[in-house]
Simulated assay, not measured.
Amino acid sequence: MLLQARAITKRFGGLLAVDDVSSAIPAGQIKAIIGPNGAGKSTLFNVVSGLYAATSGSLLFEGEEITGLPMHAIARRGIARTFQTTSLFAHLTVLDNAMLGYRRHTASTLVDALLRTPRTRREERESRDAAHDALRFAGIDGLAHRIAGSIPQEAQKRLAIAIAVAAKPKLVLLDEPVAGVTAEETDAHAALIRAMADAGMTICLVEHKMNLVMGLADSIVVLHHGKKIAEGTPAQISADPAVIDAYLGVKAHV
């Protein structure tokens, strides 16, 4: 397994946000995490990515313990993520934002940057090339020199994915990647996510749009009040009485 979560629990004072959740993501698959608002989905993402420390439980990535590591250390191991609210450096160009995604592969220090050492110049070229490749992959290379805060919301969503792709990750965590986009744009983003998987990236996504989830996911985890209430294929989840009662309301279309 690429990632294993074992009995992950996260408390905020008296609030139990994630309650003893275990799951695993095989390399090369697309796994979705679904559930009502407040179910603990984004909190679980934040634990996996190192934004939050788990209260208890353990995380293994490629067989190595990563529990409690800071975000930058987890990113260097090959885990990238996007956020539900698109997080960009709005005053920088699209290209500059994408270049930051490659940062985990660089080793230049402040001294290197001040002296413009050969290492700094080489890594800048590598970062720029990786950023252009990622922007092309996301379909927005034509916006490379636009200020990130000035591009449409759908393009900002694509830029967030491009930043993750530029990091050359093994696992990408996508937190509501199509929130706020149209049905047509949702279909285009679904194709982009599928292309990421076809390119060798393992994907884990949190998403409320069930048509996208059912069409993309190899397996689905369902959270409710912080607990895992079901896990299985889209067909199994769409027919699970507990899931229908807690979240879907009616049998989902697969």
Rank of each mutant, 00 (worst) to 15 (best):
L2H: 03
A5H: 00
R11H: 14
R11W: 13
L16N: 10
A17N: 02
I25E: 01
A27P: 03
G28M: 07
I30E: 03
P36S: 13
A39C: 12
G40Q: 13
T43N: 13
L44E: 12
L44N: 08
L51V: 15
S56P: 00
G57L: 04
H72R: 12
H72V: 11
G78S: 04
T86C: 13
T86S: 09
F89L: 11
A90T: 15
L92E: 11
L95W: 06
N97C: 07
S108Q: 14
V111P: 01
D112A: 01
A113Q: 15
E126T: 04
S127Q: 10
D129R: 10
H132V: 10
L135P: 02
G142M: 08
I151V: 11
Q153C: 05
E154G: 15
A155T: 13
A155P: 11
A160I: 08
A162R: 04
I163N: 03
A167L: 01
K170T: 07
P177K: 02
T182N: 07
H189E: 15
A195E: 13
A199C: 12
M201F: 14
M201I: 13
I203N: 06
L205H: 00
V206K: 09
M210A: 03
L216F: 06
D218N: 15
S219Q: 15
S219F: 13
V221K: 09
I229L: 08
A230L: 08
S238R: 03
P241W: 09
P241I: 12
A246T: 06
G249A: 09
H253L: 14
